[in-house]
Design a protein around this nucleic acid. Structure first.
Lengths: 249, 249
DNA sequence: AAGTGGTCTAGACCACAAC
DNA sequence: TTGTGGTCTAGACCACTTG
């Protein structure tokens, strides 16, 4: 096992990657126990603290678990997870990770006043303009995700071209507004298709159907809101998984 | 600010608690900037490493965020969150945290063979018996959560009393089987009430309605499966929130 | 007693932001 | 230049599990 030192990447990142490679090279079914921390530190030529930091992060991601006084083990179940709830990923990546071909259709762009809701969530004036973008993402040709993004008009100088905005909203706002989204606050709920719904039209749903709904406010590094969106998932196609800690003792 | 040293609790826990108290005592609207790490370390009489560990955990929980070269800040939005997706909490606590009165009704207990599904999830023999417990949790008298717990019969010696099992499954399995659940792997999907459904009956749903569904396999410290369950949430009453990192650069 | 993970410290130096 | 967070090290000692 060895570290590949690359400029601008922390030792910790390199160590995590090296550990990932090591884990992938293991025959998990036979033996899922890792060498002890001191041995790993020596193998990689770093301090035990650095190994521990990497292992701690991997255990938060659910990749490994530790048993005090016994050892560190690979979590075979978690390696099966395709779509993680946290960290959040781009829609097209979600769809590809689920084993489908991903396509996107831009179904609507409009500009409205922020109003009460938008002004609250984006921390702007209610009279400020907000760009509303609606997209449908397809998995192997079937509508899988319908999403409505909303961001302040003033973020973008000049015209907004449909071609640009067909990209992911993250890439668009990074390129055109220099905003980099690092985290969100998401609320989870559900919705049903009813006859006269946009949802029904876009998601091709004939009979009543339940959708998973994420309402997410997205922030940049400075903790300023950049955009907020509503995401409708067809859970027949897209399923999130997550390793959770239990707050019960 | 000071630390309250309690037996069996780590310095890190005490420091986190002290920081929580400090944050709560701040007037966030006026100033959400924390003192610098060195100052916090001195105030609490611990090393900077320990402060940093606590701050790092708080930032993963979304309570604070840090700006390199500028300072550490309290995340006012995150303090509003009532129900966190991670860590997972007990149902009655969820309901109380949402501002309702919590009640639980045990609607069914039965014993069946594990079968393919149960044997896979619980890592037992398909011929082994599994206890299936169905409960409905009410928020101010309205059905809010319907859940089906399943655990190996052999975990419990002797009879299973309905009175015992009315407790949370965590408390029950801890008391009767000595199993302590520390984490789960949860998959998120949705379901609809249809006419002839148990869901419709238990959740008092007359018209078609969408439910949030968590399918969760619960593990103990040794990473052995303890029980698995299916949870149906009425998202009109119970809404999960979460701070997520974005995996987009 | 031996092996392994958990906690904590002191201290050096780097990277980023603002004046 | 100063202030602040980020990374990394060496090393001491504790706590849990197994033999």
């Amino acid at each position: 096992m060895e570290i590949r030192r690359v400029k601008n990447r922390s030792l910790n990142e390199e160590v995590k990657e090296a550990l990932y490679r090591y884990i992938k090279s293991m025959d998990i079914q036979k033996n899922n126990k890792l060498p002890r921390e001191e041995a790993l530190a020596e193998m990689l030529g770093v301090s035990r603290i650095t190994i521990r930091r990497s292992l701690t992060e991997l255990s938060h991601e659910g990749v490994i678990f530790r048993k005090h006084g016994i050892g560190t083990f690979v979590n075979a179940d978690a390696l099966q997870i395709k779509i993680t709830f946290n960290p959040a990923q781009e829609f097209e990546k979600l769809i590809r990770n689920s084993g489908y071909k991903a396509e996107v259709e831009l179904v609507n762009i409009e500009i409205k006043l922020a109003g009460y809701n938008g002004s609250n969530k984006l921390q702007i004036d209610p009279e400020d303009e907000v760009v509303i973008v609606e997209k449908v993402f397809y998995a192997d040709g079937n509508p899988a995700i319908y999403c409505i993004d909303r961001f302040p008009r003033k973020l973008i100088e000049g015209d907004i071209s449909p071609n640009d905005i067909k990209l992911s909203i993250f890439e668009f706002l990074k390129a055109k507004a220099g905003k980099i989204v690092t985290r969100d606050i998401v609320e989870i709920s559900t919705a049903m298709v009813t006859e006269d719904d946009k949802l029904a039209a876009y998601m091709n749903s004939v009979k009543p159907k339940a959708f998973l709904v994420f309402e997410s406010v997205n922030f940049d590094q400075d903790n300023n809101p950049v955009f907020y969106d509503t995401e409708y998932y067809d859970t027949d196609l897209i399923r999130f998984s997550s390793c959770r800690q239990k707050d019960i003792y």
